[in-house]
């Protein structure tokens, strides 16, 4: 579905990405973890076509250049359009693609149902809780039905409870929509809870350090022995990156 080949990037003398190659399978949930400031966001924005880079990125076999309609993106920031309602935000990408009004209306309606946002259709972002804003941001990103969803630490600014709730929501939506997800986080617990595969990146310049297939069943229990074991293993890898 996605294939990165020797993706590198530097700005002036500052090397940010160092020769990154990896594939992502269709329908896979991949989590990228790495120390803060290691270049995770740059990597994700490169895949989305928001940054330029050296090397190649293939989306469904064809080399991707610039913005790709097959990709939806969820930002780290609260990035809803403040001047549009919940519905209006979800509608944005559909309007840009000049989809007929009636069809847009139906898509937005089904998104409202999928994300259980009934009653908030006409609310403005400032009237929503942080968690709800994130839900709308995910809905906006998948409104145009891209096959791939890139998520850049989307839950980072939320409290622990909201975060856990949204992780469950995200899994539910992933299972329902069968998207391919690349999810960046620095939270190992989150990665182990969500991912089919966790990839650990080195500190800047980022390169692939190790990867862990997560062979836990989908009903994951954060307190189970196996879960904690996997977490420990990944943390050990990651901690090496924080030393020196």
């Amino acid at each position: 579905m996605i294939r990165l080949e020797n993706v590198s990037k530097s700005i002036g003398d500052l090397e940010i990405l160092n020769n990154i190659s990896f594939p992502v399978k269709k329908g896979e949930f991949l989590c990228l973890v790495g120390p803060s400031g290691c270049g995770k966001t740059t990597l994700l924005k490169s895949i989305a076509g928001l940054r330029n880079y050296a090397g190649s990125i293939f989306i469904e076999g064809t080399q991707s250049e610039g913005i790709n309609r097959k990709i939806g993106y969820v930002f780290q920031e609260f990035s809803l359009f403040p001047f549009r309602t919940v519905k209006g935000n979800m509608d944005f990408g559909l309007e840009i693609q000049k989809i007929p009004r009636k069809e847009r209306h139906n898509i937005v309606k089904s998104l409202i149902e999928l994300f259980r946002l009934e009653g908030f259709e006409n609310a403005y972002p400032h009237e929503l809780s942080g968690g709800m804003q994130k839900k709308v941001a995910i809905a906006r990103a998948i409104a145009t039905n891209p096959e791939i969803l890139l998520m850049d630490e989307p839950f980072v600014s939320l409290d622990a409870q909201t975060r856990n709730m949204l992780q469950k929501e995200l899994l539910r939506i992933w299972q329902k929509t069968q998207k391919t997800i690349v999810f960046v986080t620095h939270n190992v617990d989150e990665a182990v809870f969500l991912a089919d595969r966790v990839m650990v990146l080195t500190k800047r310049p980022a390169s692939v350090k190790t990867e862990f297939p997560i062979k836990l069943d989908r009903e994951r229990d954060r307190t189970s022995y196996k879960f904690v074991e996997v977490r420990k293993e990944i943390l050990r890898e990651l901690e090496v990156e924080y030393v020196d």
Partner: peptide, 18 residues
């Protein structure tokens, strides 16, 4: 205008003009 609003538009396929 926050840069992430502009990028949000960009990934949704909006042109500069839009």
């Amino acid at each position: 205008t926050p840069p992430y609003l502009i990028e949000a538009g960009r990934v949704l396929g909006a042109t500069d003009n839009e």
